[in-house]
Amino acid sequence: MSDSKIESGRQNRPPTGQEAERGTKETTYLEAIREAMWEEMTTDPTVFLLGEDVGTYGGAFKITEGFLDEFGPERIIDTPISEAAIVGAAIGAAHMGFKPIAEMQFIDFIAPAFDMIVNFAAKVRYRTGVGAPLVIRGPCGGGAHAGPFHSQNVESYFANVAGLKMVAPATARDAKGLLRAAIRDPDPVLYFEHKYLYRRIKEELPIDEEIIVPLGAARTHRPGSDLTIVTYGAMVYKAEEAASRISEEDGAELEVLDLRTLRPLDTSTIVESVKRTGRVLIVHEAPRFGGFAGEIASQICEEAFEWLDAPIRRVTALDTPVPFAPPLEEYYLPQTADIVDAARWMLAY
């Protein structure tokens, strides 16, 4: 680690004196993703990164700035605009014992790699006994006024494919810990990082602790006793806002569960919470039809039907493409007021 890199801001930012003293460092969601890759690449020579503009430019969002200098062109590979070739190469290298990270410049661009993911990566261990431990990550989500092709949430496209794992962190801690766990996982993991959170979420993360968050475990973001909101990604913050408002204005306490991992789904934590609160509202930013909420609702019906005191409800995006103009997009996306309305209806049921 040379001083010049630190001065130019291209190295991971070292803790300030104050931060070192208190033992934590202010870390954005984006920095957490960057640090997870940096640390895994530093400690494990089998980890490498490939994608569009990840090297020379440092990634479209500058997540991998400085990686090319540090790790060299063999491990930071600028590829042609060929998502199928990117994911395919990651699968092949994974077969050979490497742990590749394939970056989609926007998660919307995962579509051209669909065959590689659902037909090759997802099925290969089942078919052949040979695993594909790769991570495919990219920025998802709306709120950035980026239009129909730079704003999507694609998890449901892959939800029906056995053999894939999927994570969607909401916090900087989870962004870091889940990515490290994903890189170490023996199966293909789709890692959905929410671009709206990149620079808006800042947390104090411990400097000396190795943060690894196991896949498949949900997290209670806010405890409550009257209604459970099951959500993930950027919607965790809208759900939290709604819960605060209802606590202040109605005196009811909403529990907010942050799924963190979408597959494998932590059904037992969801069911445990629902059995305590008797009401469950599922919130996601993806469109409603065929969305994750449908699957979660079904599982709750199978495992906790008799504990329900109100119908399960969903707050989701519209069943339309993500519109571009800010007022349209705001209308399209689930808002805090929508969650408050749905929760009140359920509490009154």
Binding site: A84, V87, G88, A90, G92, A93, H95, F98, D115
Partner: peptide, 12 residues
Amino acid sequence: AQLCVLNGVALA
């Protein structure tokens, strides 16, 4: 598709 995956073997 196998060509794309074989590239990864070659990369390895």
